[in-house]
Design a protein around this nucleic acid. Structure first.
Lengths: 161, 161
DNA sequence: TTTTATTGATTAGGAATCCTAACTAGATAA
DNA sequence: TTATCTAGTTAGGATTCCTAATCAATAAAA
């Protein structure tokens, strides 16, 4: 595990000047690492970072490859290959889409759902830490603001309805 | 550009239930994509996503490979290879570290600094959008909270100082 | 209907990224 | 000195990712 600590010497940067992009990247990376570590610790040694977007975006009933590729920001062939690997490892399965015979739905297996549970628990633990650090009110407002911006980012202009 | 829009059909998830990890990932990804697109649009067609952490973490005076690798969450050989590429493309240069003859400092070239300027401009534009969406006060509080959590994430326990 | 275009997904082939293991050279400590 | 540690690279291989081409099913047009 040569890629974990990151805590040697202080960065020596003015945190008060960090742009929002840097903070978002750092915090997202922190959580993703914790989730990966938790998965490994609980025996999922074949869990890979590349699977993360699939677990994050896959709908309960299953999602199409095209949608997963777009959300993850990779091409369809790339996502197809990742799904191949995840399928071989038993995290997801491909089932035909009843609404379009060209399409297949990618759906979590029970083993895949376990990863989601681990991720949820890990992130909830981090949320609790952060809630304690910021205080109840301020954390609630942070989360609310992040959610509103996320909605904005996902549904850009005046999209649908 | 097959990997860009992502805005077809609504996600159909309750945004109010999104965990903080999902929001952070989505927003960070949104900004990273915008930066990459802006770099491409301004002629830096050889700019790659893998370079992002280097531009984000490299100190003004230069940073050691080991530090960059840790911050980026990759191994030293991986970072070494990325730096090789970036050096060939003229984004960074390796200079000897005066304080330790084993070490080299990775430092931005003028061309590398241009990327930083593009990134800063792009992120400032996004910040402005978000500020308008949330309102001045709430955005200020969001940024402040993110910065405090970032400091916490970078300097975990009662580290150094 | 038949034709044409579009869309969902895969295959093929190659480039880029990342890993572990082994190595070189300089620093540190006994 | 000798042993150990640390910074970085090299070697070799696995994984991820891309573009281009293909197949099959849907949708649109004639």
């Amino acid at each position: 595990m040569s890629k974990r600590d990151m805590s040697e010497q202080p960065l020596n940067i003015p945190y008060d000047a960090l742009m929002i992009g840097a903070t978002l990247n750092i915090l997202a990376q922190t959580l993703n690492r914790r989730v990966a570590r938790a998965a490994h610790e609980r025996g999922f040694i074949d869990f890979r970072a590349a699977f993360h977007p699939v677990f994050q975006w896959c709908r309960t009933e299953g999602s199409r490859l095209t949608e997963l590729a777009e959300r993850a920001g990779v091409t369809k062939p790339s996502m197809s290959e990742i799904v191949d690997v995840m399928e071989r490892l038993g995290y997801v399965e491909r089932v035909p889409d009843p609404r379009d015979r060209r399409a297949t739905l990618i759906r979590r297996t029970p083993r895949g759902w376990e990863i989601n549970r681990i991720a949820r628990d890990t992130i909830e633990a981090a949320q609790d830490e952060w809630r304690r650090a910021l205080g109840e009110d301020e954390f609630a407002q942070l989360l609310s603001a992040l959610r509103r911006l996320t909605r904005l980012a996902i549904e850009p202009a005046g999209a649908s309805e």
